[in-house]
Write a protein that binds this DNA or RNA. Structure first.
Lengths: 122, 122
DNA sequence: CTACAAGCTGGAGTGCACTCCAGCTCAAGC
DNA sequence: GCTTGAGCTGGAGTGCACTCCAGCTTGTAG
């Protein structure tokens, strides 16, 4: 898999993939004879997970820290678990807030509907 | 209420409040004899709502658009309702994604726990 | 053998959302 | 009446997370 294929399948751009490598989010892949990056299929799953951490609001610095731990292998399992447990808390809080906001928007939408109906009615 | 009080009660900084006014998120308040901003209590509720839109991922440009509509009064009710209904959809989607990620993290945490137990066990 | 698409590096540029600063005025306490 | 804290304006600076570019090399199709 060359970088363009990874881009297509992951939805990231080639620039972003090289940038992620530079900052340590993705491990430097093997190179072929021409010096080009050759990725294994596993990178796609990893990118998907990174995106999920991203979408749940984990900061770049923490994702980099997690990625670094992951590259060090099984000896970092505990640390990674602790990071996930911590992040889980913040995600749960954010989730609750979003649910509140959803409910608030529903109330507002209903109220606006009501006011529109009344405005029409005279 | 002077700007410092609003800052204290809303959690925003005075700089951010003036910035929000500049970009149109908050309507320019009255001024006292000394030329200082004097806010009504209602601004606090409005800021809280802005924060919720923010926290649910609405972009600045859209919040500005919503704020502009709000300032124009009741004639914009329908537009505002439509904006909220649209945003509601994206929030609901994000919510689902976050719930997935939460579940994924729980599975990972459990798996890591398992591996830590096994590693200890020999 | 010649286009030309895709990849490479190092570094500069971008957009967003603030955040800070200089140099000033205003208000309240001693 | 002087000090000190809060507020004012216009504009510059910051941090994050990319995004783009110049100038080069490599690989494939006609």
């Amino acid at each position: 898999m060359l970088i363009g294929d990874v881009a297509k399948q992951s939805g990231l751009t080639v620039d972003t993939l090289r940038y992620y490598e530079k900052i340590g989010l993705i491990a430097p892949p093997m190179r072929n004879d021409g010096g080009r990056r050759v990725y294994g299929d596993d990178v796609l799953g990893w990118i998907r997970f990174l995106e999920q951490l991203n979408a749940t609001g984990m900061k770049q610095a923490d994702r980099i820290r997690y990625a670094a731990l992951r590259r060090r292998g099984d000896e970092t399992l505990t640390e990674r678990r602790e990071m996930l447990e911590l992040h889980r808390k913040t995600v749960a809080a954010k989730l609750a807030l979003m649910q509140d906001t959803l409910a608030l928007m529903d109330r507002k939408v209903a109220a606006y509907h009501d006011m529109e109906r009344k405005a029409k009615g005279h």
